[in-house]
Every structure is written in structure tokens, then in C-alpha cells.
């Protein structure tokens, strides 16, 4: 086996194990940590596919910012394993079964697709930041600007929701 293949299978296994860890951990903190592991595994895949820019952005955005926020919130709330009410076992079973069924259906369906054995080609300059940046600021300038609206709205929203009402405080 080549080294890339070994890395691939290692990362795959890591991602899957960690993903299962996310959903099966009792304690939200562990879920968060497992999820970070998943993100690292996925970033590893990106690197394997030579999408370095996205790999590093994945780390910065997801692992570095998003998950820190998650961790922050979970820690602030000080949620313990027993904070979550026990969901009906049958409901859980139903959820698991439906998810697995969905997966089996998709896998079965997509195994039949004609592209499924195409071999991907990692070694190019597509994933380099220079090329992506050029495309982003030329062709994709409209979505880029529009995403700023998205951010503004998220920002305003978070402030609106997060800020305590001064009047209310007086009443209290």
C-alpha cells in the first residue's frame, strides 16, 4: 500500500469513529472534542486531495472559531451528562434505523452511478489560494459581497438576541 492510501484509511477510520463519538457521547464537552477530531480528519483528507487552502480554512473556521464557540457555550452552561432528558428508547431506535436506512439506500443507489469508480486527481494547483482567490474576486465577486450581507445579518441578529434589554433589567 502506498503511503497516501494508508493515510486515507487512517483518516477515514478516525473520522468515522470520531463522528460516532459525537453522537454517542453523553457529555456535550466530549461531543465537541470528538467533533474537533472529525474536523481534523476531514482537513487531513483535504490535504490528501491537495486542497490546502480549504484544509487550513477548515481548521481556522471550524476548529478554530466555531468549535471554540461551541465549547464556550457548553462550558458556560455547565451542562453535565445528566442534563439531557432521556429520550424514549424506541424513538432513539427509530432515529438510528431511519438514518441507517437512508445511508444504505444512498449507498446502494450511488454505487450504481457511472462515476463511482472514477479516480480522483489530487495533484494540481486548483486548491491553491492564489487560484481560488483569483476566481473568488473575479467571477465570484457577487456571492462574495452577498455573503457579507449574510454576516451582517448574523451579527445584528446575534447582538439583538444576545443583548439584555435595559428596561427589563430595571423591572427585575
Amino acid at each position: 500500500m502506498e503511503i497516501t492510501k494508508i493515510i486515507f484509511w487512517f483518516l477515514t477510520a478516525l473520522a468515522l469513529v470520531a463522528a460516532i463519538g459525537v453522537i454517542s457521547s453523553k457529555n456535550p464537552i466530549y461531543s465537541v472534542l470528538w467533533l474537533i477530531v472529525v474536523f481534523f480528519a476531514i482537513s487531513g483528507h483535504y490535504v490528501l486531495m491537495n486542497a490546502q487552502f480549504l484544509a487550513i480554512v477548515n481548521i481556522i473556521v471550524y476548529a478554530g472559531a466555531i468549535m471554540v464557540l461551541f465549547l464556550f457555550v457548553v462550558m458556560l452552561m455547565n451542562l453535565n451528562a445528566d442534563a439531557e432528558p432521556i429520550k424514549n428508547v424506541y424513538m432513539k431506535m427509530a432515529g438510528v434505523i431511519s438514518g441507517l436506512t437512508l445511508m444504505i439506500v444512498f449507498v446502494a443507489a450511488l454505487s450504481a452511478s457511472e462515476q463511482h469508480s472514477t479516480i480522483i486527481r489530487p495533484g494540481t494547483s486548483v486548491g491553491l489560494i492564489e487560484n481560488l482567490g483569483r476566481a473568488l474576486f473575479n467571477k465570484y465577486v457577487v456571492p462574495f459581497e452577498i455573503s457579507s450581507v449574510l454576516f451582517l445579518s448574523a451579527m445584528v441578529g446575534a447582538v439583538v438576541i444576545g443583548k439584555k434589554d435595559p428596561i427589563k433589567r430595571i423591572n427585575e
Binding site: I20, I23, S31, H45, V73, E84, M103, F106
Partner: peptide, 21 residues
């Protein structure tokens, strides 16, 4: 792999009640 992760995500979303998870 990606479908497996996706479906694990779905399963989690369906089975857990903690909104953060």
C-alpha cells in the same frame, strides 16, 4: 465516507435532544 458522516449526522440530529449536540 461522506455519506456515512452525513447519515451519522442525521442520526444524531434525530436521536439527541440536547440542542447543542
Amino acid at each position: 465516507l461522506s455519506l456515512a458522516l452525513f447519515c451519522i449526522g442525521i442520526i444524531g440530529a434525530l436521536t439527541r435532544r440536547n440542542s447543542i449536540i
